[in-house]
Design a protein around this nucleic acid. Structure first.
Length: 641
DNA sequence: CTTCTCACG
DNA sequence: ACGTACGTGAGAAGT
């Protein structure tokens, strides 16, 4: 046995690394004591990296410990250590991990500890930290990393176990990316820090629990977030099939397109289309006048400015208002193809497990508003106006893809929370909300532009935006926008009332707003107007999460792939796809403080892209399911008009 | 590491 | 008194 002493918060701790059968007997005796006492035990793993599903992935160590004693089991290539770790993990009644979803999925895949068996016994200290203060360090919070939290709540001089190891990696000629896989399993710093992590998380947990209790965050919300985390982990574990031939062709096409337009740009002296300074200089050199500037004072050449110069509207259609600038056009096209290739195409091509699936990471509790995020690749952010990227992602063999989204969920949540009677009546009557508003303001002969303006004003309310921004967004003249906003406020008095109340309460309560689930959301004191948006966005997120739990209870999780803010994506056998989508739609639909939250199920064909194809002939040409069901393609085209 | 840009809801 | 657009993930360039 190797022992590593270390002082934490003035107390002596020991990290033990068992080596032989006798050491393992000591370990098992410790586990049995903890189990019979029903005590909470800190747990963690060290692995080769974050890409749990890559074919070369390895679990290297499993750590367990309390406030004073840690055990590091070197499980890599050691069956007897694996067996001891597995037994301990399945025996101990209460475990705390920091960022549990990651370790649970590692243990599920690489140590045969099923997620479903582990989850009921697990607490995630990162969830607790987020419920106390969701802000990362640079936004004024303490951060959510173990190091930052322990510096506040355990020992300000506790080592930065991750950061210090990066330095160790450099010293052995490795990097942050390669060090975790390459470092010698017996490296003393590695073992010491592996042990310290579980000692630290053991000490952190009671402090976080007390903090939550002191500020009045309920155990019910804590349990809710743990349950959501587990459902998201199940989705992450399933992953999604990738059409590998298609993705390879896609990457090649995007590469060609990017290079073709980069070549054009080079003729105007732009060596790199991704260098804003080069682009700006070249455009000025061509006689264009650039007026807008970035925060740091540089000339701005973003998409909207380049589209103007290229005489294209927001959907890239020629406008016919000026002579198109060929450089602006080339830069736009090269950058778009390059981004789609790298961020989406290559991410899908190179992120596959050995069954040809990707497993995007679902962070169930991420943003300040508790919104979820998805990364690696970012499937919440794939292009929606063009189906070619989503075409690469497939339902299960013999299944059809489906998607169910909420209708105008943020507006409805706002209507409910603000108890806005006029808006609630319109929703109850099943009216199109923005059309209803336009009719109230402009009369029954309102135009599509009026409706668009009212939609914009509605979003402005949700986001806390003003007339100027909205005028820029919609292209409507400022006086018109101001008039529309004033009329909107007169029509929906409850929203203004709600917004003012939230801001008043926030100022009186240390710049914290509370949501209906009892979540505390800290505000920036110079942006109190954001309170309405935070509460609405966060509550809409909780609605979707509640729906995920309801669907899990109904056995629908096996049909789901991803939650996407107001939408769930899934796959179902083709003979029952319509029924399953309808069932998901029913499970997601709910009454929210008297306001119905309706859902809109849509079933596609053999790829996610089929849900984004607008024309029947496109569906028939690019999706075999629609090729076999051309009538359905035409029906879908009608629905998407 | 920061800035800028751009993809989504 | 007035007005503020909200939240993410990711790559490339430049420091």
């Amino acid at each position: 046995m190797r022992n590593f002493p270390y002082r934490i918060a003035g107390e002596e701790t020991v990290t033990r690394v068992p080596d032989d059968a006798s050491d393992l007997r000591d370990f098992r005796a410790w586990v049995e004591r903890k189990a019979s006492a029903g005590e909470m035990v800190g747990a963690d793993t060290e692995t080769t990296g974050l890409d749990i599903y890559s074919p070369s992935y390895r679990l290297r160590t499993v750590q367990l410990g309390d406030a004073r004693d840690a055990w590091v089991l070197q499980v890599e290539d050691r069956p007897e250590m694996q067996e001891a770790a597995r037994w301990a993990l399945l025996t101990l009644p209460r475990l705390v991990f920091h960022n549990a979803a990651f370790d649970l999925l590692v243990l599920d895949r690489h140590l045969r500890c099923p997620l479903e068996t582990m989850a009921p016994r697990v607490t995630d200290s990162k969830i607790l930290a987020h419920l106390y203060d969701p802000r990362p360090k640079h936004e004024g919070g303490y951060g959510l990393a173990l190091k930052e939290l322990c510096a506040r709540d355990v020992d300000p001089s506790a080592p930065d176990t991750q950061g210090d190891l990066t330095a160790v990696f450099r010293s052995i000629g490795e990097t942050k990316a390669t060090g975790w896989a390459k470092i010698d399993l017996s490296h003393p710093t590695y073992l010491q820090y592996a042990g310290l992590d579980v000692i630290l998380v053991s000490r952190l947990l009671p402090v976080l629990t007390k903090r939550l209790c002191d500020v009045g965050v309920s155990q019910r919300l804590v349990d809710f977030e743990h349950a959501v985390m587990v459902v998201c982990a199940k989705l992450e574990r399933r992953g999604m099939r990738v059409d590998q031939d298609y993705v390879r062709g896609l990457v090649d096409r995007l590469e060609e397109e990017s290079a073709l337009h980069a070549e054009k740009a080079a003729r105007y002296g732009v060596v790199s289309v991704n260098a804003p300074k080069q682009v700006a200089d070249a455009l000025v050199g061509m006689g264009e006048t650039l007026t807008e500037r970035t925060d740091s004072g540089a000339l701005k050449v973003d998409k909207s400015i380049l589209l103007d110069l290229a005489d294209l509207d927001q959907s890239w259609q020629p406008r016919g208002t000026r002579r198109p600038n060929p450089l602006a056009d080339a830069v736009l096209r090269s950058k778009r193809a390059g981004k789609w290739r790298m961020s989406y195409g290559i991410a899908m091509r190179d992120g596959l497990d050995d069954a040809g699936r990707i497993h995007p990471k679902i962070n169930s509790l991420q943003a300040r508003t508790a919104r979820m995020s998805i990364s690696g690749p970012p499937l919440q952010q794939l292009p929606s106006g063009d189906w070619t990227i989503r075409r690469a992602l497939l339902p299960e063999p013999g299944h059809r893809i489906f998607s169910v989204d909420y209708s105008a969920v943020e507006m409805r949540v706002l209507a409910a929370l603000a108890d806005e009677t006029v808006m609630k009546r319109a929703i109850a009557e099943g009216r199109d909300l923005h059309g209803f508003t336009a009719e109230l303001i402009y009369g029954p002969d309102y135009t599509s532009f009026h409706r668009k303006l009212c939609k914009g004003v509605g979003f402005g309310k949700v986001y806390g935006g003003g007339a100027l921004t909205l005028s820029r967004q919609t292209g409507a003249p400022l006086p018109d926008v101001k008039k529309a906003i004033a009329a909107y406020d007169r029509t929906y008095r409850g929203i203004k009332r709600f917004s003012s109340r939230l801001q008043r309460e926030a100022r009186a309560d240390g710049y914290i707003v509370w949501t209906p689930v009892g979540r505390r959301l800290p505000l920036d004191r110079d942006r109190v107007y954001a309170a309405t948006n935070y509460v609405v966005q966060s509550t809409a997120r909780d609605v979707l999460c509640q729906a995920l739990l309801d669907m899990d209870a109904k056995g629908l999780t096996d049909y789901l792939y991803l939650p996407i803010h107001d939408e769930c994506l899934g796959s179902a056998p083709e003979d029952v796809a319509e029924d399953v989508a309808a069932e998901v739609g029913t499970a997601m639909a709910m009454d929210f403080f008297g306001v119905p939250l309706d859902t809109d199920p849509e079933v596609g064909g053999y790829s996610w892209g089929s849900l984004y194809m607008k024309k029947a002939h496109t569906m028939i040409e690019h999706d075999p399911w629609y090729a076999a069901h051309p009538d359905e393609a035409h029906a879908a085209e009608e629905r998407r008009r």
